[in-house]
């Protein structure tokens, strides 16, 4: 552990994010949509730890609920990508031939569009809203996972033990289940962590563009958007949600990097001495 300070920091930040979101489920200092215009744009105080926004809403509360929002977007979107993309990748690797070509080239085509552009396209088609944003982010996650899974799975299929599995009469499904999947799991976990960060960033971007979470529900991206014209009057309105996004993404990236270092057997070295 001590050799992975990044991992520890990532774990801490991600843990903090998760904890905040969990706490927000049972308790927040105020209601996230409780407006009190008389108290707007106050600085931090005992009553409002991080101050209040342009409508007098408690910023700490909105950041907490925003964390929950980010996490749920991340979890659902990454799950969509992981399950659908993972299955496609496994199938492609197991069957080869035209199925493989289809999945690989299909992923390439989707990849040709930058992730955020495809997400904007999808939300523009489905209409703005939190659920549609999740679906959009989930969809652009599918080719990411399909590609990673296929690559890793093909490597395992090239191993003698996988071939041996086929030789002793196991089906393609059996080999995938018994040999391929367990061996690529770590790759998928690392990828999922990184995609989680990407999803949070994408949700913030969509909300910022008015395509994601709709007001009054708080989203970090939406908070940034609202703060745009108020920045010169009250900079914290932009700094706080910006910081939240930055820390969450940093934490998840560090966690992902750390996990890759720890889980990748090629990088695992015995301590000297």
């Amino acid at each position: 552990m001590g050799r992975h300070p990044g991992f520890v920091l990532g774990l801490l930040l991600t843990g903090l994010l998760g904890l905040t979101a969990l706490i927000s489920l049972i308790w927040t200092p105020y209601a996230y949509d409780a407006i009190s215009v008389a108290e707007r744009m106050q600085g931090p105080s005992a009553a409002h730890w991080l101050g209040t926004d342009q409508f007098g809403r408690d910023i700490a509360t909105r950041l907490m609920v925003g964390a929950r929002n980010s996490i749920s977007v991340g979890v659902v979107a990454v799950s969509i990508g992981l399950v659908a993309g993972g299955l496609l990748g496994l199938l492609a690797a197991a069957r080869g031939g035209w199925v493989d070509e289809l999945v690989a080239r299909g992923s390439d085509v989707v990849f040709a569009f930058p992730a955020i552009v495809s997400a904007i396209l999808i939300t523009a088609l489905l209409g703005p809203g939190a659920v549609n944003a999740i679906i959009a982010i989930g969809i652009f996650n599918i080719p990411v996972f399909a590609r990673v899974t296929r690559g890793a799975a093909l490597q395992v299929w090239g191993m003698e033990y996988a071939r041996a599995g086929l030789a002793i009469g196991k089906s393609g499904l059996g080999v995938t289940r018994d040999h391929v999947l367990p061996n690529i799991l770590s790759v998928l976990i690392v990828q999922a962590t990184i995609q989680f960060a990407v999803a949070i960033l994408a949700e913030a971007a969509l909300a910022y563009l008015g395509l994601g979470t709709q007001p009054p529900a708080p989203s970090w991206g939406r908070m940034l958007f609202d703060a745009q014209t108020l920045m010169s009057i009250d900079p914290k309105l932009a700094i706080l949600p910006g910081l939240a996004i930055a820390l969450a993404v940093l934490g998840l990236n560090l966690l992902g990097d750390g996990l890759r270092d720890i889980l990748d057997p090629r990088l695992r070295t015995e301590p000297v001495g």
């Binding site: 407006i35 215009v37 409508f55 009054p216």
Partner: peptide
């Protein structure tokens, strides 16, 4: 903006 306040 008024909309958010009215809703609340």
């Amino acid at each position: 903006r008024s909309g958010e306040i009215v809703a609340a």
